[in-house]
Amino acid sequence: MIQLIDLFVKNKIKKVLNYLSKNVELIDKFFLYADEDTNRDVKIFIKDFKIDVRSSYPREEVYLPSIIVLVENEQEVNYGLGSGIDENYIGLGENYLDWPKGEKHPIQENIQMHTSIRCEVWSDNAVITSFLYAITKYCLLATRKEFEEENIILSSLSGGDLEPIPDFINFFVYRRALNLECEYTSSYYRLGEYAGKMDSQFNLGTSPDDIDIEAKGIVYDRETNGEQS
């Protein structure tokens, strides 16, 4: 299965934002060093304002504040898991040779991917942008176990300071970006290729009695139960 990992990240951010909006008292415990007035304003903001979590850049003021989730880059890891199928391929809990002959069994392969997800916080207020950046960081950390349960592993976070963007749209915007680096395994089926149907594979239903074992010039003759050179 090919994961749409940016949608997964977006859903986790939405999940935690929804939780915080219903439990705003946790703001005091989760975020240190802000003064009392700032925390009070943030609680009101989290509770009463809609924070748009999007997969594309905002074009109008109505979409701010926003958290934008983008796939910055992806790279296949050179130690990807598996490549093809042979007589030892295991699926459905048993050797593929035991699968029913009358059914088509697509060949599954796996790759390991390294990806960088960029979560950009946009608003027209520098303080709001900075605090939403911290909240986004919390969203990704608080759900890290859920990432691991989906085999999204080796995650790490990085980020930077505010980036004023005066020329992107027709009003002044502050942006701050958080990067999530991680690895995950994707599975896919080879187009039009099925187990037991390729020249390099044994047919479905093959047993050891159907195979002549040849090694170092010696062939085992099953009919005579003896060896021939």
Rank of each mutant, 00 (worst) to 15 (best):
I2F: 03
I2R: 13
Q3F: 11
I5D: 05
L7Y: 03
V9Q: 08
K15T: 12
N18F: 14
S21Y: 01
K22Q: 15
V24H: 08
E25P: 00
E25G: 04
E25L: 02
I27N: 10
K29V: 02
F31L: 07
L32W: 06
A34G: 05
A34K: 11
A34L: 13
D35Q: 04
D35E: 14
D35R: 00
E36M: 07
D37N: 12
T38A: 14
V42D: 10
I44G: 12
F45E: 12
I46R: 08
K47G: 00
F49V: 04
R54W: 01
S55R: 13
S56Q: 15
Y57H: 12
P58G: 03
E60G: 06
E61A: 04
V62H: 02
L64D: 09
P65M: 05
P65E: 02
S66F: 12
I67D: 01
I68N: 14
I68L: 15
V69M: 11
L70I: 11
V71S: 10
N73R: 08
N73G: 10
E76P: 15
E76F: 06
V77K: 09
V77S: 13
Y79K: 07
G80N: 11
L81T: 06
I85R: 13
I85D: 02
D86H: 03
N88W: 11
Y89C: 15
I90D: 05
I90V: 11
G91N: 13
L92D: 15
N95T: 09
Y96S: 04
Y96K: 02
Y96T: 02
W99F: 14
P100I: 07
G102I: 10
E103L: 07
K104M: 04
H105G: 04
Q108F: 02
Q108D: 00
E109F: 08
E109P: 01
N110H: 08
N110C: 11
H114D: 12
T115I: 09
S116A: 10
R118T: 09
R118G: 03
R118N: 10
W122R: 01
S123I: 03
A126W: 05
T129W: 01
F131E: 01
Y133G: 12
A134N: 06
A134C: 10
I135N: 08
L140W: 06
L140F: 06
L141R: 04
T143S: 12
K145D: 14
E146N: 10
E146Y: 08
F147Q: 04
E148P: 02
E149P: 00
E150D: 10
N151V: 08
I152F: 06
L154Q: 10
S156H: 11
S156V: 04
S158E: 15
G159I: 12
D161L: 02
L162Q: 06
P166L: 03
D167Y: 02
D167E: 15
I169D: 05
N170P: 08
F171N: 15
V173N: 01
Y174F: 06
R175M: 06
L178V: 14
C182T: 09
S186F: 07
S187V: 00
Y188Q: 00
Y188R: 07
L191F: 03
Y194P: 06
D199H: 09
D199S: 11
S200P: 07
N203V: 03
S207Q: 11
P208S: 08
D209Y: 04
D210K: 12
I213H: 11
E214P: 00
G217S: 04
G217I: 05
G217L: 09
I218V: 14
D221G: 04
D221S: 14
N225K: 15
G226H: 08
E227T: 13
E227W: 05
